[in-house]
Design a protein around this nucleic acid. Structure first.
Length: 240
DNA sequence: CGCTTTTGACCGGCGC
DNA sequence: GCGCCGGTCAAAAGCG
């Protein structure tokens, strides 16, 4: 779990002189009082399973190649940053049902996106696309998948105190949807990573309980790791 | 022109 | 079966 607070002035996208970021990553399997990062030299981690965590270095260079420019290249010279612990109360505000991270979740063979892609590959494409097909309604465009319970990808959320909803986390994202959230005046935005080989999705919504907090939920652990790493890097650079 | 955002419709799971 | 809700699609509009 990474818990960082940084006094940030995130490039031009953020209002200057305003941003105080509190970022936390967590899963619902992690006790609320189980924080780490007591100093900037501690390697922040993304908790994956109960009692285990991956070092960011391990996850960054493991089996998930990223071909994008590195996060370090994309990030601007950091402003002074001060890491500190985030109260566990804030972390607990996220409904646990939203952060799915079962003990077996890390061993799920394919993500929801990948599963969908695999399913598409498995299904023979017997239809030929012509002009008429394009005028068919959406029900016909999508083949139904029966008796396949969709497995949800484990999610990892960052809680960020910021006036800006969509923070620059070093990846390129394309918004593909926005929905009103029940019991919240703020909409939830859905983003898909547009980087090659990166099919990760994320959701961004502002907390209705604390409107200064933006909750960004990633559907891939290694994204979480890289975001955490980039943030910790910002912190370390600012100290030197 | 290519990429991103917007937005209404659609889909599937779930509870009643 | 029906309605609700979260998530996704895709056409149109916007933008650099």
């Amino acid at each position: 779990m990474l818990l960082i607070k940084s006094m940030a002035d995130k490039e031009n996208k953020l209002k200057p002189n305003t941003s105080s970021l509190e970022i936390s990553t967590f899963s619902d399997q992690i006790p609320a009082n189980n924080y780490s990062l007591s100093s900037i030299f501690d390697m922040p981690t993304c908790e994956t399973e109960k009692g285990s965590s991956l070092s960011l270095i391990e996850t960054m260079f493991s089996s998930h190649p990223i071909t994008t420019p590195s996060t370090f290249d994309l990030l601007q010279p950091p402003p002074p940053a001060v890491p500190l612990l985030v109260p566990s109360q804030i972390v607990n505000k996220i409904p646990s049902s939203e952060i799915v991270n079962t003990p077996n979740s890390s061993s799920i063979s394919s993500s929801s996106t990948e599963a969908a892609a695999n399913d598409d590959q498995l299904q023979p494409n017997t239809q030929t696309v012509d002009d008429d097909d394009q005028h068919k309604n959406k029900k016909q465009l999508k083949p139904k998948k029966k008796n396949q319970k969709r497995q949800r990808e484990p999610r990892f959320a960052f809680m960020t105190k910021s006036e800006v909803d969509h923070l620059d986390d070093g990846f390129r994202w394309r918004k593909y949807g926005q929905k009103a959230v029940k019991n919240s005046p703020f909409p939830r935005s859905y983003y898909r990573c547009t980087t090659a080989t990166c099919g990760v999705k994320k959701r961004v919504e502002r907390s209705s309980e604390d409107t200064s907090i933006v909750v960004t939920t990633y559907e891939a652990e290694y994204i979480c790791s890289r975001v955490a790493f980039s943030l910790s890097t910002l912190s370390m650079k600012s100290q030197s």
